[in-house]
Design a protein around this nucleic acid. Structure first.
Lengths: 213, 213
DNA sequence: TCCAAAACTGAAGGATTATTCATATCTTGG
DNA sequence: CCAAGATATGAATAATCCTTCAGTTTTGGA
């Protein structure tokens, strides 16, 4: 849905002095705060600037649009999570199914929970412009990564490794998202942390045709 | 996040003649179309009215706000899905774990896919006002329903039925949502339809302590 | 056929908001 | 310490959009 992804979403200019770096950071944080407090629908350039303690004009020195500001936020978060998952993948390469399942689930939870605020805030941005392309890319990336792990896992034989990887990615991504959006309580997160690894492990075990031990 | 849930979200008046019923339906459909084509951020009362072939004033005869319009949409969809799941629950009461897992997964998929358009459209509305309360309620409802099914399933013994039900609800809700938002292709849905029942079944079996057969 | 209620119309008011730019202030290398 | 570039300011502009309401058209029963 939504607008075709704008072409000029990059920051307008790079900071050169120390204070501008601080300004950008302040804007970044303010954006997340406004996003959480008021939602995307109520996020205005003025409000963000006010909260960041700068003037509107300053914002426009670094971002050509309001959209660019939001987009930068999303990209930053995606990159963070992607790199965290890549690390996990490296660590788990060659491990058995149980280690992979639990390792992936934990890494995913940790990455998302590292900045719950930012994660939750970002879910609302989809309203402003089309994030499906980004999400789609992220999903494919995750699927490939998982597929690679499964391929290298000893004593495994999957009828359709790609489907299994796809499903696992969906299970991970979806369950955390739903909990964050519906009721992000400590209790629910604890439950997720307890059950999600089990669920992943169970699914992998059930789809593995090789009956080693 | 977002505005505190508005108090006057109900339709302003009920239709009494046939044409007004048709008008409301037209507005409903138009809203979904605009939502999908332009996103919430670009959904304006004028645009919806135009698409519905009525004047703006007509809309305000039935909905006090733009919000009320959107809210009605969400509620309708939630009710539809809830009742579908309740039917499935009745049907599956007393069945074994495999039937429950597959039945729930299929019912969920069917309910969501029955109106993919509406389902996808609605995901964006969260930007306009706080849906977390509604989502939270829906999640609790699903969890309870599943818990009831598990309690009545023969030959089962769960250490923590509530947690298992919660996790299953999250798995169902999340995976479908992620796929719809990231890349709602036929291929992906087919995969979901193939793998999700397996995943649910695997998880239930793995957490069941009773080793009957 | 007739009319009161129901339904519809759309221009206009009022409020909000993204974005610009002329001007002011700060930072730093020389 | 000074000038040139970097950074910050915020009132003004222009556009968009929600909502209202006085007036018109349609409906259905008597």
């Amino acid at each position: 849905m939504n607008r075709p992804a704008p072409s000029l979403l990059k920051p307008r200019k790079a900071p050169q002095q120390a204070r501008s770096t601080a300004t950008i950071e302040a804007i970044h944080i303010a954006t997340i705060q406004v996003l959480l407090a008021d939602g995307v629908g109520r996020l205005t350039t003025t409000r963000v600037a006010e909260r960041a303690g700068v003037s509107v004009g300053t914002m426009y020195q670094y971002y050509p649009h309001k959209q660019a500001l939001l987009f930068a936020l999303v990209e930053r978060q995606f990159d963070l999570i992607e790199s965290a998952m890549r690390d996990a993948s490296d660590r788990l390469m060659g491990c058995n199914l149980e280690a992979i399942a639990k390792g992936l689930a934990m890494a995913w939870l940790d990455a998302k929970m590292a900045d719950v605020v930012a994660s939750r805030a970002i879910y609302g941005i989809a309203a402003e412009f089309d994030l499906s392309e980004l999400m789609s890319r992220a999903a494919r990336c995750m699927t490939q990564m998982i597929e690679g792990l499964l391929a290298d896992a000893p004593g495994t034989d999957f009828a359709d490794r790609r489907s299994v990887a796809f499903m696992l990615a969906a299970l991970l991504g979806g369950s955390v998202r739903v909990v964050m959006e519906a009721e992000a309580s400590e209790e629910n997160f604890a439950c997720l942390r307890r059950e999600l690894p089990k669920a992943c492990h169970a699914y992998l075990t059930a789809t593995n045709r090789s009956v080693v031990r």
